[in-house]
Design a protein around this nucleic acid. Structure first.
Lengths: 340, 340
DNA sequence: GACTGGCACTCGAGTTGCGCGAGTGCCAGG
DNA sequence: CCTGGCACTCGCGCAACTCGAGTGCCAGTC
């Protein structure tokens, strides 16, 4: 409706100034800092309209204006061009990630890098098992009734679980088990394994069926149910930047949310096609995070997506910069994974 | 010197009241709540002495007294009897830890449990590799020039690393490598392995020496240098209890310290005989933590120690309770490890 | 000599009142 | 439709003040 170009320009200016200064911005300061080509009075009228439409608000009468969640949303959707990263930043990313020796290392470096670049809380999900395929399954005898099951996925993830066997089993039998299990499952997508595992049980000789069933149940747990849920976190200290001003006075709810893996997974794990997702304030389903914004995206080798990563900060954040950084880091990580 | 029994009793009362109320405690309130059998005036005299000796101080004239770090220290050393845990707490610990399926699970459950029981930040170190022995080494071919090295330690820890081979290597050769490596290293303390690894290189046939050297260097890195450093953290949100009052106004330095694994390891990793260690305020070498206290202890199967765990909170903490909980949890975890 | 009651004193927290100034809304004029 | 001007609002910061908790000290008592 009444949102002509200048009003949008005013909104952009408000968002930018507020993000930069952390203080409500008034009409006068606005025309001084931006070349809007009109007088403060005009800007005031525009502001009145913007306020009516719900994009900005006054913390109290006789204070400047502050963007609302809806204002940020509009800003992100229509007003912000994604900033290109500086060559220096690109080089920093490359250098930082280059030395990684294995998946754990990649994930840890990534999460720290992301926290450092965005100066916010970073979250990186390990490559999701449900999007991986089995590369190899290893069975290591620990005692006559105990096995260590080690699964190596094509994404580099390694999961292990202890298996208690119902009857003592010889080393040869273990080798036999391993051969069979690998023959059946190697190369398969984890999502496709449940029927195959069942088949393994059905096909095995009656006297070994019990053992196989036992192994199978652990396999299913490891492969499908549990531990999709691994992730890394960094930069919590960044929450304290900007005093207690952000997050309406208390870090508590945010810290609590950050401790819940389930919540974090919801935030960054729901990865669709390679879009970057931005959730602003109230848009977060989680109550504890209604004062925060989350920028997340998927990553993976090539165009496939194996996991999510993202950043969490105050609604008052530098969206263009953050989005650019998150995207860039995701792409570099994807490239890195592709090399393996 | 002049610290007779009553003065100590006064100190104890001050610490207990201050911990409970978080407010400076005055002479009048003190005699009301505790049966000291003397008048406020007498208590005041005692307080004056205690202050002179450096055990308590006044935040400002005309306020009550607050324990100093030295006061807490004396309290912990001489005044506090360790509280016994309630049966309910014991049961909670047992129930909580019972369902663990593997080491990762044990560690995660432990750290959450500890955070919950003490209502503070909990840290648990994974069983230190340097205190473990090799149970098994597994080599899994990924491609002709790449291996996945998986080490399983007797403590249940599993570490993996990717190995880049200088020359393509056949599956049979890999099997041969595995056999040799296991023959040499299985059962050995990790601390003793470096010379053995070197021997492996020296003993291998010239044409394979290059490959073995490559594997050896990764082995050394995995076994000795890196990744001793794994730990789990929980309960950060508990830092916000008691408002911004604790930690002299800013969580920032504490959160920063918590992000540094090296620092945390210093805090809880330096485990001596089974004593519980309490570091109060300034006693922490780390500047960021001079407003915090750390209670830590070692854990492990039986009497051996394989790792450390502990709790971090404001200097104003319930030491007897925290110490009791930390000890109890450590013992239960140790028992759990002993079963494997 | 140790403890106690009394008393004067200190000083931080909370309250009130006040002036300043940033920022607004509105209106009349270009 | 924009602009300059003007009256108005209201939060912030400052100063003055009161209140009361808590102290230190001293003289008296057991």
């Amino acid at each position: 409706m009444s949102l002509d170009d200048r009003k949008l320009e005013v909104l952009r200016a408000i968002v930018e100034d507020y993000v930069a200064t952390q203080e409500p911005v008034g009409s006068k300061a606005l025309v001084e800092r931006h070349q809007l080509g009109v007088s403060p009075a005009t800007v005031r009228n525009d502001m009145a309209v913007l306020e009516e439409e719900g994009y900005i608000r006054q913390p109290h009468t006789s204070a400047g204006r502050v963007p609302t969640d809806a204002g940020y949303r509009l800003f992100v959707d229509r007003l912000s061009r994604v900033k290109a990263l500086s060559p220096a930043e690109r080089r920093a990313i490359e250098r930082f990630l280059a030395g990684a020796v294995d998946l754990d290392d990649v994930v840890h470096r990534t999460v720290r890098l992301l926290a450092q670049l965005t100066r916010q809380v970073a979250v990186v999900q390990y490559p999701s098992l449900s999007r991986s395929a089995v590369r190899h399954l290893e069975l290591v005898p620990i005692s006559s009734t105990r096995l260590m099951l080690v699964m190596i996925a094509d994404t580099g993830r390694v999961e292990q679980r202890l298996v208690e066997l119902p009857v003592p089993t010889s080393n040869d039998d273990v080798l036999d088990l391993r051969r069979k299990v690998n023959a059946k499952l190697s190369g398969e997508k984890l999502a496709d394994t449940p029927p195959l595992v069942q088949a393994l049980v059905d096909e095995s000789a009656p006297e070994k069926r019990n053992t196989m069933a036992c192994l199978a149940s652990v396999l299913l747990e490891t492969l499908v149910e549990r531990s999709d849920e691994r992730l890394a976190l960094a930069g919590t200290a960044n929450l304290t930047r900007g005093g207690v001003l952000d997050f309406q006075g208390s870090l508590r709810p945010v810290l609590e949310a950050l401790e819940e893996e389930v919540i974090l997974l919801k935030l960054i794990g729901e990865v669709e096609p390679s879009t970057t997702r931005v959730r602003i304030g109230d848009e977060n389903e989680i109550d504890n995070l209604r004062a925060a914004s989350v920028v997340s995206t998927g990553y993976g080798p090539g165009t496939t997506i194996v996991g999510g990563l993202g950043v969490l900060g105050p609604t008052r954040m530098d969206y263009p910069g953050t989005i650019a950084t998150v995207r860039a880091v995701a792409r570099y990580v994807g490239d890195l994974l592709a090399q393996n």
